[in-house]
Amino acid sequence: MALSLKNLSKNSQAALQAIGLFLLITIGILLIIFFTPAVEGTQKVQSGFYSFSQTISSWTADTFFDRETLRGEHKYYQDLASLHTHEEAYINELEQSVAQLEAALKYEETIGYTTTIARVLSRSINKERELLIDKGILDGIIVGQAVVVGDGHLVGEIIDLNDRTATVRLLQDKDSSIAAAILGSDKTIGLIEGREGYLLSMQFIPQDERIDVHDVAVTSGLDELIPSGLVIGVVSELITNDAAAFQEARIEQIIQENDFSYVTVMQIPL
């Protein structure tokens, strides 16, 4: 009995030593690669791998799309193209107005913020639709800043920070909520919230507000750190109920989370 107890304690001692050594080495390596200048290299390698996998993933999706999806997409882009023609005329009209109003609105204020380009290191696949990017507190990023891709397509906002990394909550996340307006309208008409899947939902649209399918939803600027005019998506469906106090619209994002490996963080000063 005494011998077996002795053996047991010897075994547990060896196990504890192994666990201790394992933790020591893992945390040691982690400290070296994330808290020394080596972090640059690590993040470069990590984002390189992410970018490579994301390219393969997009290529696979493009190559092996089923016929129905392709047909649906074809129709969707045809509609978008026809919408584009109408929009061109509308944009011309707007451009003239903007040129006149530019001075009065102190246009420099709307572009008076800096931007930071960040690489995507990882993305979550669970319910919390999030991205990890390689810029953090040391780069001047703060919680609440807007994250865009391309020429101003909003994809999410910063929700969590480390020294050299930041977590971006994507618009599809169920906790995401952004004040929105319809392009051409100068007032906030709803909140865009995340839903499971790729569609977003625009809530709290007043019943008297006129919205059409293919209207473009943009940020309204009501959120403190998110500038106005960032494209969120296109209205794909309207859900109206006369008995309800508000209308609802489904918004389809033009850029999907798999389409990019670089993002831009908009640093609006507080």
């Binding site: 394992f22 893992t26 390596i29 982690l30 990590q46 791998f49 992410y50 490579f52 996998s53 994301q54 393969i56 993933s57 696979t60 999706a61 290191l121 990882s122 993305r123 979550s124 696949i125 990890l132 798999n258």
Partner: peptide
């Protein structure tokens, strides 16, 4: 452990479901 965690978060999760 570290290689596999990097592999999981950076490479595997970059793919679609």
């Amino acid at each position: 452990f570290l290689v596999s965690l990097f592999f999981q978060t950076t490479i595997v999760q970059a793919f679609d479901i």
